[in-house]
Design a binder for these strands. Structure first.
Lengths: 202, 202
DNA sequence: CAACAAAATCGACTGTCAGTCGAATTTGTT
DNA sequence: AACAAATTCGACTGACAGTCGATTTTGTTG
């Protein structure tokens, strides 16, 4: 009951690295077991399928991020700081730049999608709670908070997590965020800091 | 120069049907050539790879829709009608309900994604032109039109083209559309008619 | 028509890969 | 020691995308 879990984690670790560096489709089970130094049967003793393993790898990533976000939410910071903190927990740190890059690559659509949907499910409730707090403080003014938060996350993912984007995209997104949440114009420019890095056309 | 193109179209037709009914991943080249009654080599005489064929299948779908949309745009209809018409050309007709369903299935992520990006590229310019016209008529008031149109399309796809969605999602989306384009509140409810069909939770 | 080239077709073969299965080994328990 | 449960092994299967040289069909030209 101990040895098994350790092996499982070891395999997840190896897969995490390989999936991100080469893409999920381009990583074979044979490669994983070779790096781990185990036989095919052992691999399938721990995972039902390659895809199920991908789910596990992603679940682990998301859980770490959600953990950090929950910490921020429970803190005593002012609402604005909480928003920044929660978003920051979800955005890849600077030492994880490769992740950002890897997920944009065309061979990783499947992984990218699974991450997107799992992340959405985990983060929407947390961010919604922060926004709720913001409404009580008079920072925001809107109904249907979870739906609106979900929309903004879908938008940011669709706009910035793949391909190029222009300055105008960022500006309009900030405008959209203010209007959707009923924030005063010009108060949500801070979002921009989380985006600048990817696209740069024009 | 004639026979070849006919065969090519025949293969695209078969693939179109199979991809939608079983999913792209679950359809093998062997199955396609068996239905067509040709040999492997012939298939690869017409398509470089299975994925390139998928691109061609999708390109064909999109081109038809874009064609219809261009017709609407060039017509003499009032702006509001043009918007409705362009959106309608893109939405699957009633005899294509299966398509809508098929694309939601988990095994079709790749296809779904390719369609989404190709459709975006084709439709954004057309819809933008219609919105531009709307601005001139005083229906809308906004800058950065293509960016805003793109956002709305990304949003609608992310919200409604997969999984469930609630009544609140639709309402908030309409609200977002009005605010993003600077339309008067309550004037864009007509969008709702294009959505009702999929999700129904609560 | 004969001769030749280009277009189209054939299908056996290769290599890769996910997943299976029964046997063997290790570990823990009584 | 005896037995069971957990873990590991690796040869094997089946499916599948893609290759390649040979062959047939079609179109062209003197």
């Amino acid at each position: 009951m101990k040895k098994g879990e350790k092996r499982r984690q070891e395999l997840l670790q190896i897969a995490y690295r390989l999936f991100l560096s080469q893409g999920y489709e381009n990583t074979s089970v044979d490669q994983i077991i070779e790096e781990a130094g185990i036989a095919k049967g052992t691999y399938y003793y721990y995972f039902q399928s390659k895809e199920q393993m991908l789910e596990a790898v992603i679940g682990r990533m998301i859980e770490e991020e959600a953990e950090a976000a929950r910490g921020v939410l429970a803190s005593e910071l002012p609402v604005a700081q909480k928003l920044v903190g929660i978003i920051a927990s979800v955005r890849p740190n600077q030492d994880e730049q490769p992740i950002e890059e890897a997920l944009k690559r065309p061979e990783n659509v499947l992984m990218h999608n699974k991450i997107r949907s799992q992340l959405l499910e985990a983060i929407v409730p947390l961010l919604s709670e922060a926004v709720e707090e913001g409404v009580r403080c008079g920072l925001f003014a809107c109904n249907h908070i979870p739906e609106r938060v979900r929309m903004l996350l879908i938008l940011s993912s669709g706009l910035f997590d793949e391909g190029e984007f222009s300055r105008a995209d960022v500006d309009v997104f900030i405008d959209a965020a203010e209007k959707l949440l009923g924030a005063a114009p010009g108060t949500m420019g801070f979002i921009g800091q989380f985006i600048r890095q990817g696209g740069a056309e024009k």
